[in-house]
Design a protein around this nucleic acid. Structure first.
Lengths: 182, 182
DNA sequence: GTCTATAACCAGATAGAC
DNA sequence: GTCTATCTGGTTATAGAC
């Protein structure tokens, strides 16, 4: 019991909301997961309601993501895409909550913004620069950026919802970089 | 009241499960949506339980999808991809239920199979043939097919969960076909 | 801050009249 | 086949002892 109870409730709420959905998780489950007696109501010494703890979970996760945010590296396309997939991994619980309980989440705009910055929305402007510099073949940069974004997000979601792809991550990223770069 | 009550219950269950999630939909909501008195229990003259109606909804939707299934057209890449997106549109409720309540769905394997056939899983073998025939540049066909699949699925999901892309469908499909074909 | 106990409510499901 | 009425169990939330 190193961390205090409020933090333990937030931890168990994050994992349970992300894996089972908000509706399926009872306050008694959160008490149990935090080491409190289920049904004791001790939860309510720390949060006013289930909606309240949901908002706090989303807030904390968005703030953590904003702190992790950093300048994009200057590597090649494959490195850039691999890094975007890694960023999506770190956002996994937030993605899961958005997908399962999107309409119910507080601060939906902030959630979408942090997901976009964190790896979902690759910069079309940067791709255009690469095309202008002759690093990659010239195409419709905005549309290609969208295709790349969707491929990365799709890959992330496929691992979760479709049981994987049969193509490992390195091979996927290499093929994507090859398509854009050659 | 043209169709019989059982069908009306299935219809309202499909839309409500897909949009709000199974857990959030009460049996009384299904009664209400089917024109029965909410709380009357008339639902139970047609289905044994909520789990039972969920199974029936999934079954009906999978069977409909299997009947829609048809030979893939011999058009060019862009036509092929546009058709895959249209197939995904028709599968929208099933996709929504899989994403929201995947673990709870009965016949999960059949659901995944029909989604794969219906537009998610494009044929890597066919792409390889195109590469062998010189129609498109030679690359890692299996990995490229995976990228294409994920881009299409990601596009479909983005419209639903991220409020669209800022790139319309034709432009997206054209960019994808250009990447693979040139 | 956690517990026992409980109130108030809602959802799933059943019995039986019509 | 639909209704009224009801049972049962689970969930949110509160009161008050320790």
């Amino acid at each position: 019991m190193a961390r205090d109870t409020r933090e333990r409730i937030l931890d168990t709420a994050l994992t349970q909301f992300a894996t089972r959905g908000v509706e399926a998780v009872a306050v008694t489950d959160l008490e149990d997961g935090a080491g409190l007696k289920a049904g004791s109501g001790s939860f309510y010494r720390h949060f006013r309601s289930k909606e309240d703890v949901l908002a706090a979970v989303v807030d904390r996760e968005v703030e953590r993501a904003e702190q992790r945010r950093q300048a994009r590296p200057a590597g090649d396309l494959a490195e850039e895409y691999a890094q975007a997939l890694a960023a999506l991994d770190a956002l996994r619980p937030l993605v899961a909550m958005l997908v399962r309980d999107g309409a119910r989440l507080p601060h939906l705009d902030r959630v979408r913004a942090v997901l976009a910055e964190g790896g979902v929305q690759l910069d079309a402007g940067r791709l255009q620069e690469r095309m202008d510099a002759g690093e990659v073949p010239a195409r419709d940069a905005v549309a290609v950026a969208a295709v790349v974004q969707m491929a990365l997000v799709g890959h992330h979601l496929a691992e979760r919802f479709f049981g994987g792809l049969g193509v490992d991550r390195d091979r996927f990223v290499a093929a994507l970089a090859d398509l854009v770069g050659r």
